[in-house]
Structures are given as structure tokens and as C-alpha cells.
Amino acid sequence: MVTISCRDLDVDLGGRRVLSAIDLDFAAGALVGVIGPNGAGKSTLARAMLNLVPTAGGSVAIDGAELVGLAPSHVARRVAYLPQGQEIHWPLSVERLVGLGRLPHLAPFSRIGPVDQAAIESAMAQTGTLPLRERIATELSGGERARVMLARALATEAPALIVDEPLASLDPGHQIEVMALLAARARAGGLVLVILHDLAAAARYCDRLVLLHHGRVVGDGAAGDVLSDAALDAVYGISAWRGEAEGAPLFVPLRRRD
């Protein structure tokens, strides 16, 4: 069972405080959504949890061990990360690209083995990207590319998964598929952290929501509590309609506060 915890975490970027006094604990078994307006510090929080940005204060620990002291390859095997934006720099085949997710497991100069191949197949099957196997990744549509990149992160088979904006450029069908997939991974005992802009999807699928505003945690808990009228007004400046369908909350942003 993997845990990630942030203790009194501060992060500065370009001389500006982007995250301050973040105290959060994440454990396996729950799908956690990180929400907040543009510039709230969501992506920086994810990057800080992977030691991709230097911290100005406080600490991050994986399985109780301080992140800064851990070998990068160890972190890579424990936490898979799908950054925002889906950069792909070379016209690789989809299968080769998904195979990059196995890099943390490969010994120097060794090739993809049967275990790795099985992980690649499984990741592609889960994301419905098997038919794309031979396609050139840089020639895929935005939605296809998003799913292939998710498959790349899944192929690592790390117990923890941090995904930044996986729903951008996906059609509704694939949005539902991706959220259901992430929820299923969490239920199966994974630690899944997903950064979302889509509050409706966040409310419907996440077991726990963390609301960031100006680099601080201003809400942490079940969707119903975090997305209160007061919080929505203060953080997003919007009002919303709430309902329920098929036993899960429905949430529709309505209008911007004048």
C-alpha cells in the first residue's frame, strides 16, 4: 500500500509563492480529485509530489520516506505521472510510446521482456488503444493521443498514479471511460490523484476532492461538502445546480457571480 503525504509544503516559482502550507495525506483505495481555478497551483502540487519542482519549505514523503532522499528510479516505480499537455517529440509507434512507461523497470541495456510486454498490452487494453498499436503517435487525434498517453502512464504499473487533466480533448464517451477507469484503479487498491477542471466529472467520480485556491487548500472532503455554495462563490465566483442521477451526484455550473 502506497501513501503520499505533504507536510507544511511551500513552493515558489519565479520568486512567487505558488503553494503555501500544504498539509495533505493520500492513501490507496480512493480516487482523489484536485480542483481549483486556473493558477490555483494544482499542477505545481502534482509536480512537487514527484520532486519535479524544488520546494521552498516543508516536505513530501512517499511511503513515509522523504522524497528528496529517494532515487529517481525508485520514485518512478512507485508513482506514475501523466503530465499536462501530452508532449511527444518523435514519431514513435503507439506501442513503442506506451512501452516508454516500462523504462523505470528495465535494467541498463536490457530490452522489453515478457513481463513488460504484458504490462503494455494490459495498459493498452484498459484504455481501448489496442487498435492504434501500429499508428504513429504524433499523427493521432487529440483524444486518441490522450488515451495513448494514459496507457503509457498505466504501463508503469506503479501503485500510485497522478494524472494532470486527462479529460481535455476527450469526447463525452471517452471522458466517462477514463474517469471510470481511474475510479476502478482506485477501488482496486491504487492511489489515484486526478487534476480536473470539469467539476461535474469531479463530483460524480471522485471519492474525495481537494480544492485549491491561491496556493492553499480551502476544501478537502466529499464532493457535497467541498463544492458548497459558499466555496463555489468564493473560489470560482459561480453558482451551480445540484442533483442526483443513478445514485451519483450531478453538478452543473450555472452562472458567474456579477
Binding site: V79, L100, G101
Partner: peptide, 13 residues
């Protein structure tokens, strides 16, 4: 690993 960008490469160890 760098074909996934700098963050992508670092997150792969």
C-alpha cells in the same frame, strides 16, 4: 524518456 518532455522523463526516473 525525453521524448515525453522534461517532466515526463524525470517522472520515469
Amino acid at each position: 524518456a525525453l521524448s515525453l518532455g522534461e517532466d515526463g522523463a524525470r517522472s520515469l526516473g
